[in-house]
């Protein structure tokens, strides 16, 4: 089971710039490590992160092997309307995970 942790404020004033945090549990196996028998451990990483605000892409990121395991991101967004933030991670094989959080904008 993959753990996802989000931090999105529950309420915000219209136009306020809010802080968002998103973390996913993932090894982010770089492909540059060796196992106990000296064999190279194949690369297995998340390559794409996207954040949608009511369906509109507001922030995205491309991950490379230089991103640490259990990748965490902190970024910002302008709160314009009530709705949801959806966070989507996609790995190199196309598997994806997502979670969302609601925000009340007044």
């Amino acid at each position: 089971m993959t753990t996802i942790r989000l931090s999105v404020p529950e309420t915000a004033d219209r136009g306020e710039i809010i802080e968002l945090r998103a973390m996913i549990q993932h090894e982010m196996e770089s492909g540059f490590r060796f196992g106990s028998r000296g064999e190279m451990i194949p690369q297995d990483i998340i390559t794409k992160f996207e954040c949608f605000y009511n369906g509109t892409l507001v922030f995205s990121s491309d991950f490379h092997p230089g991103v640490a395991a259990n990748p965490i991101l902190k970024f910002y967004a302008r709160a314009n309307e009530s709705g949801s933030f959806e966070f989507v991670w996609t790995d190199q094989n196309g598997q994806s995970w997502s979670d969302s959080a609601q925000i009340e904008v007044s």
């Binding site: 640490a68 990748p71 965490i72 970024f75 302008r78 314009n80």
Partner: peptide, 14 residues
């Protein structure tokens, strides 16, 4: 995007 509001990103790298 302009919706970001603030060009500030924190992460963890190797």
């Amino acid at each position: 995007t302009p919706m970001s509001g603030r060009a500030d990103v924190s992460a963890r790298i190797r």
